[in-house]
Design a protein around this nucleic acid. Sequence first.
DNA 1: TATGAATGAGATTTCATTCAT
DNA 2: AATGAATGAAATCTCATTCAT
Lengths: 203, 203, 203, 203
Amino acid sequence: MGKVDENKKKKKETLFNSAYELFITKGINSTAISDIVERAGVAKGTFYLYFKDKYDIRNKLIAHKTHELFRAAKLALDTAPEPVTGLDEQLIFIIDHIIDTLVLNIPLLNFISKNLVMGALRSVLLTGERTDNDFYEIFLKMVLEDTYEYLDVDVMLFTIVELAGSAGYNSILYSEPLPIEQYKPFLYRSVRLIIDSHRVRPV
Amino acid sequence: MGKVDENKKKKKETLFNSAYELFITKGINSTAISDIVERAGVAKGTFYLYFKDKYDIRNKLIAHKTHELFRAAKLALDTAPEPVTGLDEQLIFIIDHIIDTLVLNIPLLNFISKNLVMGALRSVLLTGERTDNDFYEIFLKMVLEDTYEYLDVDVMLFTIVELAGSAGYNSILYSEPLPIEQYKPFLYRSVRLIIDSHRVRPV
Amino acid sequence: MGKVDENKKKKKETLFNSAYELFITKGINSTAISDIVERAGVAKGTFYLYFKDKYDIRNKLIAHKTHELFRAAKLALDTAPEPVTGLDEQLIFIIDHIIDTLVLNIPLLNFISKNLVMGALRSVLLTGERTDNDFYEIFLKMVLEDTYEYLDVDVMLFTIVELAGSAGYNSILYSEPLPIEQYKPFLYRSVRLIIDSHRVRPV
Amino acid sequence: MGKVDENKKKKKETLFNSAYELFITKGINSTAISDIVERAGVAKGTFYLYFKDKYDIRNKLIAHKTHELFRAAKLALDTAPEPVTGLDEQLIFIIDHIIDTLVLNIPLLNFISKNLVMGALRSVLLTGERTDNDFYEIFLKMVLEDTYEYLDVDVMLFTIVELAGSAGYNSILYSEPLPIEQYKPFLYRSVRLIIDSHRVRPV
DNA sequence: TATGAATGAGATTTCATTCAT
DNA sequence: AATGAATGAAATCTCATTCAT
C-alpha cells in the first residue's frame, strides 16, 4: 500500500472513530458533521470525500460494530477451554457472550439499538457484509456439523436473533421485566425450544 | 367544559393529527414544526402552548397509536364470531390482528417501529399509560381465566411481545427471511412454545 | 380609597416589584413581560392595563429607585448625630451616603447605571419628577442657606453629579483605577474644588 | 496575505460597517442580524463566522470608534498650527476636539454613550486595546514631558475622563444645564482644577 | 486530495400584543 | 377590571453542502 493510500485509510479511520465517539456520547441527531471533522482534525470537505452523509457513516459504523461483536463471540467460542458442543449450546454461548459484552458497554448497546438492532444483526447474520468473516456461512457450518438435522434454518436463526436482540436490549437497558442476569434462563430456555422445534431427527 | 376548553382540546387534536400525517409521510427528521402548524392551520406559537418540542409530540403520538392497535385487537377478540378460548389462542389472535393491521398500514408500522416498537409496546403492555384501557390488567385477566396456571407471567408476556414485535416488524417490512404470511406459522409455533413453557399444570 | 382602587394599586405594586427583581437579576433584555406577570401572579393582559411596555415600567422603576436613594441620603443628613454644616460637607455627605448604599447593593447600581445613571440622577435632581420631595428645591435651599454665595448653581450641581455618578460607578464596580474607598478622597477633593470655583464670597 | 485572507478581511469589514450604520440609525435593539447581513450583502451564516452575536460586534465597534476619536484628536494635537504646551492645555485640546467631533456626529455619540461611554473611553485610555496606538502610553508621555510633576496620574486621568465624558455627553445631547458651547468653560475650568490638584511642583 | 470560507435555506423558539370571554 | 389563549412576525442560530484555491 502506497503512502498516499495509507494516509487515505488513516483519514477515513479517524473520521470513523470520531463519529463513533460522538454518536455514543451525544447521539446522532445532536452530532453535526462539523463536530466529527473537528474532532478528527480534518477539513469539512474531506468528510464528503469518504462518506455521503451522516447516515452513511452511521450505517457503516453499526455494521462494523455488530461485526466485531460477533467476531469476538465466535473467537471465544472457538477458544473456549472446554469445547462447546451442540448447536443450542453454541448459539447460546454466542448470545451470552454478546450480552455480557453489551452489559459492560451500554453506550454501544444504545448506539446499535437505537438504530435498529435487529436490522443490523440481521444484516450481519443473514444477508450482509459478506466480506471478511461470513457469519452466515459460519452458522450454516455450525448447523451442518450438529448431530441433528434442521428444517428452515434461516427462519430459525432469524427468530432467535430477533428474540435475543429485542428482549436482551430491553432487559439490559431497563432491567424489565427482570435484570438481564435473571432473565437469561428464560431467554435461553426459549432459544432452546425454538431450536428444538426446528430439529428433524438426529442424523 | 367551557367554550375555551373545548377550543383548546380541538387545537391540540388538530396538531396531533397534522403531526401524525406528516411523520408517517415524510419522516420525523424531515418534518418541521412549521409544517405541522401550517397543516393544522394554527400559529407557530400555538404549538409550543401544547407541546415541548417535536419529540414530545412524537412520543405522545406513538403511545397513542400503540394503544389504539391493542384496543382494536382486543375489541376484535371480544366480538369474534366464534369465541376464542385458551390463552395461547387469544394471544395469537391479538398478535395476528395487530400484524394484519400493520400489513395494511406500513407507514404506521414504520412510524411506531422506527421509534422503538418494543419500548412502546412494552410501555403500553407492562408499565405504562394505565389510563383508559389497562392492557396489563386485561392480560392478567386473560391469564387468570385460562384453564392453566402460569409462572412468571410478566416474563412470558415480555418475551412474546419482544419476539412478535421484532420478528413481525422485519418480516412485514422486508419479507425476510419469509413474507409475513409464510412466517406466521413459525412465529405462532414459537409463541405457543413459550406459553407452554410457562404453564404449571391445568388448574 | 375604595377596595377596588386598593386592589388596583396592589396589582401595580406587585408588577413593579416583580419587574425590579427580574431586571436586576436577569437584566432587562432577558426579562420578558411574561416573566414579570408570572412572578407577579397576574395575567398577561393585566400588565398592559398599567404599563405601556417593558421600557415604561423600567423608566418608572429607575426614577423611583433613584428617588429613594436621594431621599434616604437626605434623611441621614438631617438626622446626623452632629449637624453637618457647609454646602461642600453636605453635598459630600449625600454623595458618600449614596455611594455606601450602592456598594452594598451592586445589582441596584448596575440596574440604575446600565440605564444611564446620569440621565436618571439628573432627571431627579434638575428637571424631573417634582412630585413628593423636590430635590432640586432642597438643593437650592441648601445653597441659599450656606455662608457662601454661589454663581451658576445649576452648572455646579450638574458637574458634581456627573462626576460623582460616573466616576463612582466605575470605581465601585471595577475598582479602577482604585477601589472606591481609596478613590473617595480624590473624588471629594475634586468636588470641593468644583464647589469652591463657584463661590463668589462669603455672604 | 493570500486572496482568501484578503477576502475574509473584506467581509468582516463590510459587516462591521453595516452593523455600525444600522446601530446608529435604528439602535441596537431594533437592529436584527438579518438586517446587518442583508445590508452587507453576505449570507447569514457568514456573520457567525466572524462574530459571536450582536453584542460581540457592538463591543468591538465601540472600542474601534472610541479609538478612532482619540487617534484623530491626538493627530490634531500633534499637527496644530501652533504647538500646544502644558498638560492642561493638551488634555483640554483633546477633550475639545472629541467634543467638537461628537457635536457633529450625534448618532455616534448616542451609540457610544448608550453603551457606556465612560467604560469605553476608559478601556481605551487606561486598560485596554493596547494594540496600535497605545493611548495610555501617549498620556503618560505627555505627563512626563510636562514642566510639572504629578502624583496619582491614573487617578487624575480617570477623574478627568469620567467628568468630561459624562458631563459632555449630557450637555451635548440635552443642552442641559447649558448648551455644550456655554458649558465648555465650566468644564475646562474643572479640568484645570483637577489637574492642578495633582501637581506637586514645577520640576 | 485536501481545505475551509461561504452559503442560505430553514429550524426552533420567543414574546409583545390582542381580544373574546 | 381581569384573564390567558392565540397569534405570527421576527429573531437567533445551525449546519449540510459547495466550490475556489
